[in-house]
Design a binder for these strands. Structure first.
Lengths: 199, 199
DNA sequence: TATTTTTATTGGTCTGGCCACTCGTACTTT
DNA sequence: AAAGTACGAGTGGCCAGACCAATAAAAATA
């Protein structure tokens, strides 16, 4: 098949991933040399280097002349606060924050209502409405995310959510009651759609 | 003092920043050609390319053979860089990538079909299907994002998309044709729902 | 005028080279 | 024998120059 004409350096990234898995490389370990990789991948060294530069800027690797290329050790979570600084000072993203958060919450609600409606509702029903109101929107929403069981999604949501809190002038937090209503509504819609398909 | 002997490709990034400021380049504008930059910076073309690859993966630029190198419709590559490190730090998130990407794409499709169905379809119809197939899934999908006009959302999507390319073992890229079909389907569904509400 | 062909420019990739740095090893020197 | 030294192999950093493939603009043609 066709083989999609990836750019060569994208294949390099692919290959590096394979090295990491095959040799169980951990942070700090050395990757094969540029020349070795070029030989094995049958591409030129310059192509290898293009791939390396890309993920170097991403902080995945670290190169030391005379020694080699190494997987970078994990960094501390100070990243998060740095990140907030950048998003903060970027007016464009600030304006888009609410919108993006809304879309992603919508996606999460949909996913939850589609695949985990039972268990989510069950957990919610374990307490009175007042209990959730007291816990707040964040905690209540996180129930959905917990059941979806996707850490990355959870992180992204939490990031956006936290930043919106930071930036928000008017501190009106979303209402727990509304959250329940929206979830139910989506659940119904999803059911209607799927039953329609069955016919 | 100064010092720090930057790697040459980091100076390239600096220089590109200067180009952007000096010439007031906006997203979509063309950068000088690789050969021009090499000449002006007094470095080799391969060095220029290493710098370009780095910020290409970050989503800052886009290269088109025969045409040139262009600023992507969004920038602030620090944000992207930090975001990516953050995400990459945690191996656990790796397994969630495809899922998260899928959810977010779904949300984007939905948003596009709900509020920008006209203009998106219009832009797509401006060319034959083969044109979009040739441009690939990424570019075709970005049409939707462009119309939604949310830089943050665009960044997040591009990040996830790029990383999935990096990490995925099965290289099957989504099909442009399927994209069109899904978009149409969602458009229809959205229309049905809203007309129902009117009754 | 419309279409085809040519040409110049651009990114994509390769080859092969030289340099600077690191590290281990063999070789002095003490 | 121990300490220092010189050397060589390997590595990343960078370069010059080349060819290909895609694109767009200009020129030639119908």
């Amino acid at each position: 098949m066709t083989t999609k004409q990836n750019k060569a350096y994208e294949n390099v990234l692919e290959k590096i991933k394979n090295y990491i898995e095959r040799d169980h490389l951990k942070p700090g370990d050395r990757l094969p040399s540029e020349r070795e990789m070029a030989e094995e991948l049958q591409v030129s060294r310059s192509t290898i280097r293009e791939g390396l530069r890309a993920i170097e800027l991403l902080g995945m690797i670290e190169t030391r002349r005379g020694e080699g290329t190494f997987l970078r050790p994990y960094q501390s979570y100070q990243t998060l606060s740095l990140l907030s600084t950048f998003i903060f000072q970027d007016p464009a993203t600030k304006k888009d924050l609410a919108h993006t958060l809304s879309l992603i919450e919508q996606a999460i609600l949909f996913e939850g209502a589609t695949h985990y409606q039972q268990s989510i509702t069950a957990e919610w029903s374990g307490h009175q409405v007042n209990y959730w109101k007291k816990r707040g929107y964040k905690q209540t929403f996180q129930v959905i995310i917990k059941h979806i069981n996707n850490e990355l999604l959870a992180k992204i949501w939490y990031l956006l959510y936290a930043f919106r809190l930071t930036l928000n002038e008017d501190n009106k937090e979303s209402e727990v009651k509304q959250l329940f209503e929206r979830f139910d509504q989506i659940s119904v819609t999803v059911k209607n759609l799927s039953s329609k398909e069955d016919m």
